[in-house]
């Protein structure tokens, strides 16, 4: 709440002082333009350095907190979530990142971690049902002659990627489920970085959630 209000005020000060520069241009006699530029620069520097040095993100004045942690040799402390689709035969399939449009996999992953388990069981089921619907829609598109489109179908491969690159697993027919998916499973995957270097399959998977629940 406080961060949102402070950030909104910071942005309003930035835009407001910018409009003063414009006022100085339009009404040169009434407003000292050079002084208004100084004010604008001061506000922009004050808010942007304030956000960065205090490490309180005030987007669009960002603290640019990126890859700040010490990565432990085993990823058990923060397992990676993996959502897989399940067909009627019980076979599991990795789901292509493009299936989650309009969500990107990073946002979906973070939402699942932070919000999904806060929902009551009925709401969780509705959200999972929506995700299953997205997966099946994308599966059908992937099997069509046109294939599963990129988030912008006209730009195709030139679509701006998200912050993390993801493999387009359903670009290959053998990875695409040929029968409808009837359920979803969310696994928490963790592994020992050193062990997996030598044996890529050494991953511990823990079933975190399943839809429909058994």
């Amino acid at each position: 709440m406080k961060t949102n209000i402070a950030s909104a005020l910071g942005f309003a000060a930035f835009v407001g002082s910018g409009l003063l520069v414009e006022a100085g241009r339009r009404f040169p006699g009434r407003w000292d333009r050079r002084r208004s530029i100084h004010v604008f620069l001061f506000v922009a520097l004050f808010v942007s350095f304030g956000a960065g040095l205090s490490q309180h993100d005030m987007w669009p004045f960002s603290s640019w907190k990126m890859m700040t942690g010490l990565t432990p040799p085993a990823t058990r402390a923060l397992p990676t979530l993996s959502i897989v689709g399940v067909d009627a035969g019980g076979n599991e399939y990795q789901i292509d990142y493009r299936a989650w449009k309009p969500l990107s996999p990073e946002e979906l992953d973070s939402w699942l971690r932070n919000n999904f388990y806060e929902l009551d069981p009925a709401a969780r089921a509705r959200a999972a049902s929506f995700l299953l619907q997205l997966s099946n829609g994308a599966r059908e598109q992937a099997l069509s002659t046109a294939g599963l489109p990129f988030p912008n179908r006209w730009l195709g491969h030139l679509t701006a990627p998200t912050h993390l690159l993801h493999p387009a697993v359903w670009s290959r027919a053998e990875n695409t489920p040929h029968t409808p998916l009837v359920g979803l499973r969310i696994y928490e995957e963790s592994w020992d970085l050193e062990a997996r270097r030598h044996a890529p399959v050494r991953v511990t998977r823990v079933l975190a959630d399943e839809y429909p629940s058994r």
């Binding site: 961060t3 950030s7 987007w59 004045f61 960002s62 939402w111 701006a160 998200t162 912050h163």
Partner: peptide, 24 residues
Amino acid sequence: IWTNSPYARGLTISVLALLTLAFS
């Protein structure tokens, strides 16, 4: 849906730059 800080997604500096350009 999970955070109000969409930095590192490509439009953070764009917002600041476009508004700065608007006053120049």
